[in-house]
């Protein structure tokens, strides 16, 4: 499904500020995988997503999606099969435009033509889809998205993404900017959509409990490398304590700073 080979990213190469954000990462994501990724700040989680989504070019290495080499494909081309949700709910939707206009833009991927696709049949379809969010948005098709709360916008972004059936979805701490109540609503929706549509998912989180509770596979990143890859039964039996213990064994490093960053 997704194959990453010897991927690395170096910022400011050849200068004193040179930083290797990703070092020789190999990763194979199987169809239907739900992978959670944890790691402290600067571990390279977001950089990994930037490379996979095509937001930034890789320094070396290759990325394959369904056996097609997409390493040189631009971000907008990869967007046809890779969906991504950011931490900031405002990034996924156009706030100054009506809800129905947002949905029609997201409905069909690729360059748009001079057709007016928005008709009453589409509106009915959108209403039906919006009902799944259980937020009453189906009655607000003509409202500007900017009027919605952060939770509503993030739920909407999620819906707009799954409506186009991507092969892979990247969730970049997509509930971190929401209050606890909204965060759990959006997270519940996420898992429901992932199950319903059988979406292959990679989810970055700062919350170890979340990383353990969700998904079938867990990656831990540190200093640009994947240092831990747990799946199946082992993943099910994981606890926060075991995870911290494993980190100590691998890195022989003090985890104190990271413990402060990774809330259990």
């Amino acid at each position: 499904m997704i194959r990453i080979e010897k991927l690395s990213k170096v910022y400011y190469p050849g200068t004193v500020n040179e930083i290797a954000a990703i070092r020789d990462v190999d990763l194979h994501v199987a169809e239907g995988d739900f992978i959670t990724i944890i790691g402290s700040n600067g571990a390279g989680k977001t950089t990994l997503f930037n490379l996979v989504s095509g937001n930034q070019p890789a320094t070396t290495g290759r990325i394959f999606v369904n056996d097609t080499d997409v390493t040189s494909h631009a971000e907008y081309k990869r967007a046809a099969y890779i969906g991504r949700i950011f931490q900031d709910p405002r990034l996924g939707t156009a706030g100054r435009m009506a809800l129905e206009d947002n949905l029609i833009i997201a409905y069909k991927k690729g360059m748009k033509g001079l057709k007016i696709s928005l008709n009453s049949r589409r509106r009915d379809f959108f209403r039906e889809q919006l009902t799944k969010l259980e937020m009453g948005l189906e009655n607000r098709l003509k409202d500007n998205v900017g009027l919605f709360s952060g939770g509503q916008r993030q739920a909407l972004t999620l819906l707009m993404m799954v409506i186009s059936r991507p092969s892979l979805i990247l969730l970049d701490e997509h509930t971190a900017a929401l209050d606890p109540k909204n965060a759990s609503i959006v997270l519940d929706l996420t898992t429901r959509f992932i199950r319903e549509y059988g979406l292959t998912t990679m989810m970055v989180t700062h919350n170890m409990g979340q990383a353990i509770a969700y998904g079938n596979r867990l990656l831990m990143m540190d200093k640009g490398e994947i240092i831990l890859d747990v799946a199946g039964e082992e993943k099910k039996n994981l606890t926060v304590e075991k995870l911290i213990d494993k980190f100590h064994k691998i890195r022989h490093a003090s985890f104190e700073n990271d413990e402060a960053l990774l809330s259990p």
């Binding site: 706030g95 206009d101 997201a106 748009k112």
Partner: peptide
């Protein structure tokens, strides 16, 4: 119109 509002979203729709 969406491009003027949110370029990231336009990229996300494959344009």
């Amino acid at each position: 119109g969406a491009l003027g509002d949110n370029p990231q979203m336009v990229i996300a729709t494959g344009v």
